[in-house]
Write a protein that binds this DNA or RNA. Structure first.
Length: 456
RNA sequence: GUGGUUGUAGCUCAGCUGGUUAGAGCGCUGGAUUGUGGUUCCAGAGGUCGCCGGUUCGAACCCGGUCUUCCACCCCA
């Protein structure tokens, strides 16, 4: 006996009903991407290591899946690094390729490489899997899909406004109500760091702040102290911990806090424009909120930062995120191209929709009718009707083998096929078909036209 | 990468402080029923108890390692 087959940790097989539901979500997202003027591209599943390494911070590098070189890679490796068991030094020598970690960096590479064919501003969308060598847990996989839409080549804040609308539109079409789009701004965070005199600790400070709703005010302060942020600086942050009220009240508080920081004030102006414009245009089902503790993807975001939370009743991390990155293409040698984009986490949206029972029943409808196979002559007769029905766009099947009828019936039953068509000698003689409704058990003899009409 | 958790039939799970031949429900196969499924009845097949090693007269059960599951941290969709 061979050993039990298995798949790698954090990966999944998708069975028919799952694929159908995933395709439904992709379909909705894709349609909205198109409506908002985005064009599709695809990039390879693996890139040259140097394209990816160093773009996501130290933590990110660790989570990138490296691909071993072909051939006798150890012979070509540096013997000193090998002997010293220096993994970091050795990795660069035995691995030149890596699986993509997200869609944004490969997109930046694409833009630089194809800059002469691209007309700016360029709006593209991309729906492909990405890989992370992370430990799996709820809603976290090592292979998962991202659905990204980005615009490069425009600094206009109208892009941010449109992305908020795009989120709202997709979640409305998925019937996923009460999502919360949280927005922050890197400039505002820089401003705060500036005001409290901790510019050099921006990342540490924001990472700690990000945990506010999870671990609470005291623990956040403790973490900040551990990272070397002064007591005086933490005292100045006090208003941030208790920022409440309407969006305009929050903006007012922030404006006071950041009065001496030009960058910070600019961040507030940007947020205010987006918030006011959205308020005027109105969202259909989502809510836009300002959240100064939001600090994801800080390694490349420079302006707006977005994150979408699932409806509160579902315990799930974010189902989408994004932001503006002013110089992502700079690292690949193309300066002064501003980009902004958002991502939908397909796998998590799926889990949320499943938990809330939001998939429409029609999505799961498969084969409409099964023709019972009574033998060769009968199958030939049945097959003519099968072809006619398929030409009409109706999904039907002929059971391939002339086995016992009970077996064929139970096959239809298990596959949830709603109708069975019987074509035996008596039907052949009269040129009819016996149509059986599997739910009610009723059956009637019909001609081909009636058959088509009944199954449509 | 750190800490915890899980693994017994295709699936969901029992299995006492270590004791002879490891059980149930569901599913599967055949029959009751050779032109009628979903209900019922009868019979049957299916397990090196995740894997490797150790302790013991004896291990599904105890110990170590490893893989896997799920959860938390780091980080993140």
């Amino acid at each position: 006996m061979s050993t039990k087959p298995s798949i790698p940790k954090g990966t999944r097989d998708f069975s028919p009903s799952e694929v159908v539901k995933r395709n439904y979500i992709i379909d909705v997202i894709q349609r909205d991407f198109g409506r908002f003027g985005f064009q599709p591209i695809e990039t390879p599943s693996f890139e040259n290591s140097e394209t990816l390494m160093g773009k996501y911070g130290e933590e990110g590098d660790r989570l990138i899946f490296k691909i071993l070189n072909s051939g006798d890679y150890l012979r070509k490796a540096d013997t000193d690094a090998l002997k010293a068991q220096d993994s970091a030094a050795l990795t660069g020598q035995i691995s030149e390729k890596a699986l993509r970690y997200d869609l944004t960096v490969p997109f930046a590479r694409y833009v630089v490489q194809h800059q002469n064919e691209i007309t700016f501003p360029f709006k593209r969308y991309q729906i492909q899997p990405v890989w992370r060598a992370d430990r799996p847990q709820k809603g976290r996989f090592r292979e998962f899909y991202q659905c990204d839409a980005d615009v490069v080549g425009s600094r206009s804040l109208w892009q941010e406004v449109e992305f908020v609308q795009l989120y709202d539109s997709v979640f409305t079409h998925l019937n996923l109500r009460n999502t919360v789009i949280k927005m922050n701004n890197r400039k505002l965070l820089s401003g705060i760091a500036e005001v409290i005199g901790a510019e050099d600790k921006l990342i540490d400070f924001t990472v700690a702040l990000d945990k506010l709703d999870k671990i609470g005010e005291e623990k956040v302060k403790t973490e900040m102290r551990e990272k070397g942020i002064s007591e005086a600086a933490i005292a100045k942050l006090e208003p941030l911990f208790h920022i409440t009220g309407t969006v305009s009240e929050k903006i007012k508080t922030l404006r006071e806090l950041l009065a001496t920081s030009e960058t910070g004030l600019q961040g507030i102006d940007e947020m205010e424009f987006i918030v006011e414009t959205i308020a005027e245009l109105e969202l259909k089902s989502a809510t836009l909120e300002i959240d100064v503790t939001l600090a994801r993807g800080l390694n490349y975001y420079t302006g707006a930062i977005f994150e979408v939370s699932a409806p509160e009743e579902v315990k799930m991390g974010s189902i989408g995120g994004g932001g503006r990155y002013d110089d992502l293409t700079g690292i690949f040698g193309l300066k002064d191209i501003s980009g902004v984009g958002i991502s939908f986490g397909l796998d998590r949206i799926y889990l949320v929709m499943e938990e809330l029972g939001l998939f429409p029943k029609t999505v799961l409808e498969g084969t409409r009718a099964l023709f019972v196979n009574f033998g060769e002559a009968e199958a030939r007769y049945a097959m003519r009707a099968v072809s006619a029905l398929r030409d009409e766009g109706i999904s039907v099947d002929l059971y391939p083998d002339p086995v016992k009828m009970g077996k064929q019936m139970s096959y239809a039953d298990k596959r949830d096929i709603p109708y069975v068509v019987l074509t035996g000698v008596s039907e052949m003689e009269s040129g009819t078909y016996t149509l059986k409704n599997m739910k009610s058990g009723e059956q009637q003899q019909v001609d081909i036209d009636q058959l088509v009409r009944s199954l449509k």
